[in-house]
Design a protein around this nucleic acid. Structure first.
Lengths: 198, 198
DNA sequence: TGAAAAAGTCAACACTTGGTGGCCTACGTT
DNA sequence: AACGTAGGCCACCAAGTGTTGACTTTTTCA
């Protein structure tokens, strides 16, 4: 696989001339996967969009599945909420994702992950991994048992506004969403810490 | 099921001998679409599962797309919330959908709609229609501008619990979800009626 | 300069898909 | 019983897919 034989004993592997092509392919592939999901994305379309031959995609990534895996190698850039007081957590969270998602040229990271995960088991598993390793630790601590429902609300928002594009949700301005939704997310945050025993 | 050309001038169209096959096909197709989405569902698989020849599917439904349309002809059985006082709306809503979704043999209606709509434009459009004609009117009235975010929360729950199966959400018991999530949904409901001008 | 290695192209493959038309069978009506 | 028709099956087609291997072009470097 292992597209990277490391011959260099030192830290960084030697740069290849094809690195640029590799990353172009990956970029284009990410856009296609985010826009159409796994099945409807064809290697031929990605290659055409990247201006190269379909065979190159296979050469560098082995297969469509492995290209998909590479595209799912995602690092969410989560905000640092360590200093935020509990009663402002909801607003800070929402505000952060709103500004990121609203902008046109925003990263497709979330769309890629969400759209893929709904119809593709591999992507769903990857999403759970990302949740466990990148999301839960950051928001964990005293709110451990609530993290799931916080994320649920954020995903719901992304889903209905950016994927399903439900008019009643699309119509709202960012300010309106903030005003209406912060109390909702806060409603989970501000519950008493220990819930009844399970 | 409303796949019935009405030739009969009287009330009921004449029953055909093939009606049973038709409905079997539609049932199986709904299950497949709900489980795998549009692209990954093949006519051959549906036919095999229904125990008939693939050609029959085309014969009765014309094409895969039209079979999909027929499968999307859905009537949500929404609860009647007219008599529920405002401060119990959230709980009533959540409780209703929880009991429907939790049960094993539950209807796949939501999964079908949700899973399809994320990768298929036709399904997304159908979902917006259903929202506009079946959901919004029922919840509308004084909460008109909030309906979108209420639905957002319900969809988010269905998404993370039943589609993505995020462990932190799956792990929760129905009672826990109710306890944690009712304040959230209520947080939207109980906002002052008129929000700042748009 | 020349040769080896890398980068990229091309044509073809095996396979799956949705879809079509012809054919056989079983039923219902007269 | 005969026959017309609807229900069902089979073989097949054309298009599109991921993937492969051989080939050509470009770069690298001794």
């Amino acid at each position: 696989m292992e597209v990277e034989p490391r011959e260099n004993a030192s830290s960084a592997p030697p740069p290849r001339r094809s690195d640029r092509t590799r990353s172009v392919i990956l970029d284009v592939a990410r856009r296609h996967f985010a826009a159409h999901g796994f099945e409807r994305t064809t290697i031929r379309a990605v290659a055409a969009d990247a201006g190269i031959d379909p065979a190159l995609v296979i050469r560098y990534y082995g297969s469509k599945a492995r290209l998909f895996d590479a595209a799912l190698d995602i690092t969410l850039r989560l905000p640092d909420l360590s200093g935020v007081p509990a009663d402002h957590l909801a607003e800070a969270l929402l505000r952060h994702f709103m500004v990121r998602w609203e902008h046109e040229s925003a990263d497709d990271t979330l769309l890629l992950l969400l759209r893929s995960a709904v119809t593709n088991d591999r992507a769903a598993e990857r999403m759970r991994e990302i949740f466990a390793t990148q999301v839960a630790p950051g928001l964990g601590g005293p709110h451990a048992e609530k993290v799931g429902l916080i994320v649920t609300q954020l995903l719901g928002l992304a889903l209905s506004r950016h994927l399903l594009r439900i008019p009643a949700v699309v119509r709202l301005t960012p300010g309106e969403i903030l005003a209406l939704y912060v109390p909702a997310v806060g409603g989970v945050f501000q519950l008493p810490r220990g819930r009844e025993a399970r």
